[in-house]
C-alpha cells in the first residue's frame, strides 16, 4: 500500500458516500444517471467475485463489501425507492455500446484466459467508460448540482491517484499491470473536460454549467 493508492481509495469511498447521502438526504436522484450506477454495480460485482475465496487483508475485504453494498443501495434508490425523481428522459446513453465492446475486448486482451480473470478484465475495461452516461446526462441537462460535481470530482480523482500509485509500484515494486494502467488512463482522460470545468467554475463558487 502507498499513499497514492490509499488517497485514491479514500477519494473513491468519499464519492460513493457523497452520492448515497445526496440521494438519501434530498430524497431525490435528479441529475444522477441510473445507467452509470448500474454499470458501477456490474463493475464491482464482476471484479470482486474472489471476495470470499481470496483473502488479502481486512482493509481489502471490508472496502470491497462497502463498495458492492453501496453500489447496489444506490441502484435500488434510483430505480425503486426514489424512482419518481429519476430523470429518465435525460439518461439516454446507450449502455450496450459500452458493455458489448468491453466484454469482447476482455476476451481478446487479458492476462489469463480463465473465467475469473476475464471477468476481472471486463470490470476494468467497463469501469473506464462507466461514467460516460453520467457525463452525457450532465451535458444534456447543461448543468449539474454542486454536490453532484463534487461526487464526480472525487470519482475522477480516485483513478488519477491510482495512476500515480502504478508509477510508484513500477518504481519501487517492479510491478505493473498494463491492462489496469491503460484503462485507468482512458478513464482519467474522460474526466479532463469535467476537471477543467470543476476547477474553473465550481471552485469559484459558480454552478457547474456546460455550454448546452
Amino acid at each position: 500500500m502507498n499513499i497514492f493508492r490509499f488517497l485514491g481509495d479514500i477519494s473513491h469511498l468519499s464519492a460513493i458516500i457523497i452520492l448515497l447521502l445526496k440521494i438519501w438526504k434530498s430524497r431525490s436522484c435528479a441529475g444522477i444517471s441510473g445507467k452509470s450506477q448500474l454499470l458501477f454495480a456490474i463493475v464491482f460485482t464482476t471484479r470482486y467475485l474472489d471476495l470470499f475465496t481470496n483473502f488479502i487483508s481486512f482493509y481489502n475485504t471490508s472496502m470491497k463489501v462497502v463498495y458492492v453494498a453501496s453500489s447496489y443501495a444506490t441502484v435500488w434508490m434510483i430505480y425503486s425507492k426514489f424512482k419518481a425523481t429519476y430523470d429518465g428522459n435525460h439518461d439516454t446513453f446507450r449502455v450496450e455500446f459500452l458493455i458489448v465492446p468491453t466484454a469482447i475486448l476482455s476476451f481478446l486482451v487479458n492476462h489469463d484466459f480463465t473465467p475469473l480473470e476475464i471477468l476481472w478484465t471486463f470490470s476494468i475495461y467497463l469501469e473506464s467508460v462507466a461514467i460516460l452516461p453520467q457525463l452525457f446526462m450532465v451535458s444534456k441537462t447543461g448543468e449539474a448540482e454542486t454536490i453532484t460535481s463534487h461526487y464526480l470530482f472525487a470519482l475522477g480523482i480516485y483513478r488519477t491517484l491510482y495512476l500515480f500509485n502504478w508509477i510508484w509500484r513500477y518504481q519501487f515494486e517492479e510491478f505493473f499491470d498494463l491492462i489496469a494502467i491503460v484503462a485507468g488512463l482512458v478513464q482519467t482522460v474522460l474526466y479532463c473536460d469535467f476537471f477543467y470545468l470543476y476547477i474553473t467554475k465550481v471552485l469559484k463558487g459558480k454552478k457547474l454549467s456546460l455550454p448546452a
Partner: peptide, 10 residues
C-alpha cells in the same frame, strides 16, 4: 497473454 498477478488492488 501477459502473466496473471495477485489482485491486491481494489
Amino acid at each position: 497473454e501477459m502473466e496473471a498477478y495477485s489482485k491486491d488492488e481494489l
